[in-house]
């Protein structure tokens, strides 16, 4: 059981970080498909820098820096140069894929990937206090520090988004650009902050992906996890808790898909569940299904209250 839980955790964390990354920009109303490219670049830089310096700290910092740089590029093109965020985001992904493979071929002379002989171990966290946490504790034991950081980032993101001026500015910029501007909020700066935050989180996701267990980089190693994060964010209604719930669900689907390889249920079907779930959730949201349920419940309680008064 603990084996499966830890497999779920390993599948969940990069997706969760990508979902949080996409969430900040979504709150500022920018559909961020560039998370994939930010992750890929960060995953590559993590291995390349770790190989040169032999230091875990420098490698993680460099990976986060690479993610932020990619997001800065995305931000400059979409916010300053008025490029369409979707097209620019896809461009960022193409660029990240191209640059990493180009460097693999030209600098490392191995288009198949970058596998250092020696690579510093990413810090892992273990201890009795961790194992004492119910249910997920045993699976958390011995996981990388980024895993714990990712879980801690869920409440932190909530605080940032709903309890700080900058989070307020981001949400205002997403809610109504003109009203926000009239209220004295710098919409451009709020959006740029959201984009840079997404780069930071995307960078962490990339570092976790290449450094945590594998210690190597492969071309296109993100293989759609950035988009999976986007789907999780949308399925979770662009909130931190929703993103956590959705990425966990997707992590379960991913881990189950790996286990089911060659089983009775085709694993491709299980792996498609996240995307189908995102489509259904978006459609249900637009249909006003949630609102209908809520208003039905409200009218029922109102009815009951009225009955109560009558009695």
């Amino acid at each position: 059981m603990s084996g499966f839980t830890s497999a779920v955790l390993i599948q969940t964390v990069p997706v969760l970080l990508a979902a949080l990354a996409a969430m900040f920009t979504q709150q500022a109303r920018i559909l961020n498909v560039a998370v994939e490219g930010m992750m890929l670049m960060a995953a590559f830089v993590a291995i390349a820098v770790g190989q040169i310096t032999g230091s875990v700290g420098v490698a993680v910092l460099a990976a986060v820096g690479a993610g932020v740089l990619m997001s800065l590029l995305f931000g400059i093109f979409t916010l300053r140069l008025n490029a369409n965020p979707l097209v620019a985001g896809l461009g960022i992904n193409l660029l990240a894929g191209g640059v990493t493979v180009f460097l693999l071929e030209r600098v490392y002379e191995n288009p198949g990937g970058l596998r250092p002989d020696e690579f510093p171990e990413l810090w892992s966290v273990s201890g009795d206090w961790l194992r004492a946490i119910p249910f997920v504790g045993p699976a958390l034991d011995g996981q990388s520090v980024i895993v714990l950081l990712a879980l801690a980032l869920v409440p932190l993101s909530w605080l940032l988004l709903y309890r700080t001026p900058i989070g307020y500015a981001m949400r205002a910029a997403g809610e109504d650009e003109h009203a926000a501007r009239a209220a004295g909020i710098s919409v451009g700066r709020a959006r740029m902050t959201a984009v840079l935050l997404s780069g930071l989180l995307g960078g962490l996701a990339g570092a976790q992906l290449s450094m945590a267990a594998l210690h190597f980089f492969l071309p296109d190693m993100t293989s759609g996890r950035g988009f999976l994060g986007l789907a999780a964010m949308l399925f979770g209604g662009a909130t931190p808790a929703g993103s956590l719930g959705a990425s966990t669900l997707f992590g379960v689907a991913g881990a189950a898909g790996d286990r089911l390889q060659g089983g009775a249920i085709p694993n491709q079907l299980v792996l498609a569940v996240p995307y189908i779930a995102a489509i259904l959730a978006l459609t249900a949201a637009r249909m006003g299904l949630f609102r209908k349920i809520r208003s039905a419940r409200r009218s029922r309680t109102a009815q009951e209250a009225a009955d109560g008064v009558a009695v």
Binding site: F77, L90, G91, L95, G98, F102, L104, E105, P111
Partner: peptide, 14 residues
């Protein structure tokens, strides 16, 4: 290397 082209495609899209 041929991956120069993917790099150029990304640049052009941007």
């Amino acid at each position: 290397p041929r991956s120069l082209v993917s790099l150029l495609t990304g640049l052009l899209v941007l």
